[in-house]
């Protein structure tokens, strides 16, 4: 340890254990006048237990009210509650900064503010940036594999082969092609349409570019191309803007950050925080839905459809839910409520 000036303190009393032994000695640590050597004495019998070059002694950072620990070469240990030890061994500024930062004081409350601010910055900027980079650099064949696995599960567990006839399928395929032609050139290829025999009126997109349309959707709205095109345009938005992938990365990032920040809080609190990060994920998911709605309106208009089709779709769905007890509250849902989405889209159209 380097020192600038001669220490005021030349000896400190405490306790010592020799290397690897639990035997406790009442001890005194003395610094030679020229500051070059340290001597460890047993206070009871005056015996010298150990000596070494002063610079080889290591003073560990302070830890609350616990005695300061000085580790001497070979694993000998000197413990003292005398604050003079910092002066005796010329504690470096790094250790002092750490102690100042960790002391309970007005600074602690400044740190609370710091945590809120940096947490917000991370949530708003760092995580989205990292997620965007990761999503952009994910190879296409990984995405194809995700699609393949998801479609396999879908076909073998949830549903049977679609009962739509060739003509119905060709109509939807035609709508998709009209929409993709309106996309920027680099996004025009790579989409594949899949039909599944599910009663629910829905469509969804997989990250690799697979668009899944249920029989329910075509049966209900097949006669109205604007509606089907609007729904497809919304799903295309998810694929083009890589929402699925971003969701995956985002939830992984928030989960890791929560674990890093509160690694050792015990089982109950960890659960609460993991669930809280799940709620944050849902908030992001709702943001993506709104973004896909905007995308859908714009794309269907560019492709020559009536953008009101998507609005009509949600109006129809909204009418079907009379019993609101079945719908979870918005904060527990991956999608914004129909009312909110409709309100937003009507504003966009005006």
């Amino acid at each position: 340890m380097s020192r600038d000036k001669h220490p005021q303190v030349t000896a400190v009393e405490g306790q010592a254990m020799q290397s690897g032994k639990s035997a406790l000695h009442e001890a005194r640590l003395e610094l030679r006048k020229d500051g070059s050597h340290l001597y460890l004495f047993d206070r009871n019998n005056g015996e010298q237990l150990f000596d070494c070059l002063a610079q080889r002694a290591k003073l560990e950072p302070a830890m609350g009210t616990a005695p300061r620990r000085v580790v001497l070469p070979g694993g000998h240990l000197f413990l003292t509650t005398d604050p003079g030890i910092a002066d005796l061994l010329g504690e470096q500024s790094r250790g002092r900064i750490q102690s100042a930062l960790e002391r309970f004081s007005a600074l602690s409350f400044a740190l609370i503010v710091g945590i809120i601010v940096s947490g917000w910055l991370i949530w708003r900027f760092a995580v989205p940036l990292g997620v965007t980079i990761a999503a952009a650099s994910t190879p296409q064949n990984w995405l194809d594999q995700i699609d393949k696995t998801a479609l396999y599960t879908l076909r073998n567990t949830w549903s049977f082969e679609s009962r739509l006839d060739e003509e119905e399928r060709r109509d939807v395929q035609g709508l998709l092609e009209t929409l993709t032609e309106a996309l920027p050139a680099r996004h025009q290829t790579g989409f594949k349409l899949h039909f599944v025999n599910l009663k629910m009126v829905n469509a969804f997109a997989l990250p690799g570019g697979s668009l899944v349309v249920t029989d329910g959707l075509v049966e209900e709205f097949g006669s109205n191309p604007d509606v089907v095109a609007g729904v497809l345009a919304h799903e295309l938005g998810h694929v083009v803007e890589r929402h699925g992938l971003k969701n995956l990365y985002r939830s992984a990032a928030t989960y890791l950050l929560v674990l890093a920040v509160l690694g050792d809080v015990g089982p109950v609190f960890e659960d609460v925080l993991v669930n809280a990060s799940f709620l944050v994920d849902l908030a992001y998911s709702r943001e993506f839905e709104a973004a896909a709605d905007d995308f859908g309106l714009k794309l269907s208009k560019q492709a020559g459809f009536d953008p009101g089709g998507l609005v009509a779709f949600f109006e129809s769905l909204n009418k079907q839910i009379d019993d609101d007890s079945l719908v979870p509250p918005e904060w527990l849902s991956t999608h914004p409520s129909f009312e909110r989405r409709l309100q937003r889209m009507r504003q966009q159209l005006d």
Partner: peptide, 23 residues
């Protein structure tokens, strides 16, 4: 002999530095 106030000081510094260094 731990003390809630002392541990709070260390704990809050831990969280702050963890966030600032992205984990």
């Amino acid at each position: 002999y731990g003390d809630a106030k002392d541990w709070f000081g260390i704990w809050i510094a831990n969280i702050f530095l963890t966030l600032v260094t992205l984990g």
